[in-house]
Structures are given as C-alpha cells and as structure tokens.
C-alpha cells in the first residue's frame, strides 16, 4: 500500500486540478450551511415557543458562521465574497435539495426531521474532513464539530419527544413526523450525490471517505434511530427520487425564489462591497482565523 497523500498547507500549494476539486468540495459545504440557515430563519417569531425560537435562531447563526468559514477558504483562491455568494449565478449553487425546500406551513415536524437528517450527515462528513490533506480545512473542522453537537442534541430531543406517544407526543405528532420523513428523505439522499470533481476530492485526500461510504453509515444511523422510535422510514432504494439533485446545480423552483429573496437587499442597497458585521465583533477563540 503506497497511500501516503501529499499534504497541502495553504491555497498557494495546490495546482489547478487540486484547486478545482477543493472548490467543488468547499461549495458543497458552504452552500449547504448557508441555505439551511436561510430556511431556518423563516421560523423567527413563529416557532412553537420562545425557547424553541431562540434555539433554532442560534442554530441558524451557527450555520451561517460555518458557511462563512468555508466561503472564506474559497476566497483564498482569489474569488471575492460577491463572487462566492451574492453575485453567483443561482444555478451554480451546489447545496443538496433537502436544505432548499420550503417548510410546509407551520409544520415544526419538518424542522425536526430535516435538521435531524441534515445534522447527522453533517457530523459524518465533517469527521471525514478531520484528516483532510488540505490543512486549512482540517484546521476548521474541530471548531465546527463542537457546535454541531448541540444541533444534533436539539433535533434528537425533539424527535424523541414528538415520536413517542404518551407524555409529550401523540398520534398527530407521530403522523406529522412520518409525513415529513416521507417528504424529506428523497431529498436528503441528495446530500450524498456526487457533484463535479468528486473522484479527485477523494483521490487527493481532501475528504477521506467516499460519498457511498458516508451514505451507508448515515442510513444505518438514521433508519435505526427513527425505526427505534416506531417511525416508518421509506426504503431508500425504493423511494422516487426528484430529478433535481442540487449537487450538479439542478434545483427545485423553490430555490430560485429563495435566492431572489436573500439577495434582494444586497441588490437593492447596491453597496460597493458586502458588509461584514462579523468583523466588528469580539475576537473569536480557537485556532482558525
């Protein structure tokens, strides 16, 4: 076995092929985090209680922060913030269709199931980046993972309580979770769809596991946990998959509406450059800049 991968310390150390693979990987990560947060904040003031409102808002803030970490790395390849986000063509976004779907009106079960499916996948993929051959990715993983623990706890706690009929959950909450699962699972599978340069991402050691491998472990975890709560989970090999898979730039119509919404103020204000509130805040703890 001669499997020693080259280690890349910084953006300047990579060639053209590596750069393309890294950009593809980073766009997947950044876009997922950004778009999932965009959808979460639609719950502001509408969540079932003040406490759940704050918790979800806090999770959304975390995800925006993680998106920032990955978009920042993309900027190290010479792209501006406008180019990686605000002025990028909506058809170039690489997030999974799971995160772009609008919520069914007032359906908290959708938030619970969506974040459970997403955050479980998020942990697996971050762990597969912990030993990335690209040092700037490695350096950021620990920081992100430590916030993700809360996200999984949050989703898992809600899921357990709404699924079990009795003290907190009932027939209705159980049924709503199943309906959300049926609706979301086909889209969640696109989390593990290949996009551009997937073979290179693994070949160069930027991610240390294949998507098939991650998908298999993810399914083991989520199917056994949800079935353990007596929730019916559709057979992932049997479900009808949407045509759009997100990872290749194909998206549901709802994405293009969401894109218009979140870029609306940016276009309207027409600043010379995007405003970065983060830069004015207190210095962050931890290794990554």
């Amino acid at each position: 076995m001669t499997d020693a991968k080259t280690d890349y310390a910084a953006a300047d150390d990579v060639g053209e092929g590596e750069r393309q693979a890294l950009e593809a990987l980073l766009f997947r990560l950044a876009d997922d985090e950004y778009v999932v947060a965009e959808r979460y904040i639609e719950w502001q003031i509408y969540a079932p209680s003040l406490e759940s409102d704050l918790a979800l808002a806090n999770i959304a803030q975390d995800e925006f922060g993680h998106a920032r970490l990955w978009y920042d790395l993309l900027q190290e390849f010479g792209r501006s913030e406008e180019e990686v986000l605000w002025e990028r063509d909506s058809a170039d976004f690489r997030h999974s269709t799971l995160v772009e779907l609008p919520f069914e009106d007032g359906d908290w079960a959708d938030v619970v199931v969506r974040s459970y499916l997403y955050d479980t996948a998020e942990r697996l993929r971050l762990e597969a980046l912990a030993n990335s051959s690209y040092a700037p990715i490695r350096d950021r993983v620990g920081k992100v993972l430590s916030e993700e623990r809360y996200h999984r706890e949050h989703a898992g706690n809600w899921l357990e309580r709404l699924a079990r009929k009795g003290e907190h959950g009932d027939e209705t909450s159980h049924r709503k979770l199943e309906a959300a699962t049926e609706r979301l699972l086909p889209h969640a599978l696109s989390l593990f769809e290949a996009g551009p340069h997937e073979a290179d991402i693994v070949e160069y050691g930027f991610r240390t596991r294949t998507l098939e491998d991650l998908r298999e472990e993810w399914l083991d975890i989520v199917v056994s946990f949800m079935e353990g709560l007596d929730l019916a989970v559709p057979d992932p090999d049997e479900v009808e998959r949407p045509e759009e898979i997100g990872r290749d730039g194909s998206h549901t119509d709802d994405w293009f509406d969401l894109y218009d919404d979140f870029t609306h103020t940016y276009r309207e204000l027409d600043f010379e450059e995007p405003i970065k509130l983060r830069a004015q805040g207190p210095k962050e703890k931890g290794a990554a800049k």
């Binding site: 406490e51 759940s52 704050l54 918790a55 809360y150 706690n157 309580r161």
Partner: peptide, 8 residues
C-alpha cells in the same frame, strides 16, 4: 429540554 434551552 430545560438544560438544552437554558444553554441558549
């Protein structure tokens, strides 16, 4: 749940 919400 109380511990979870109180953290935030």
């Amino acid at each position: 749940m109380a511990k979870m919400f109180a953290q935030i």
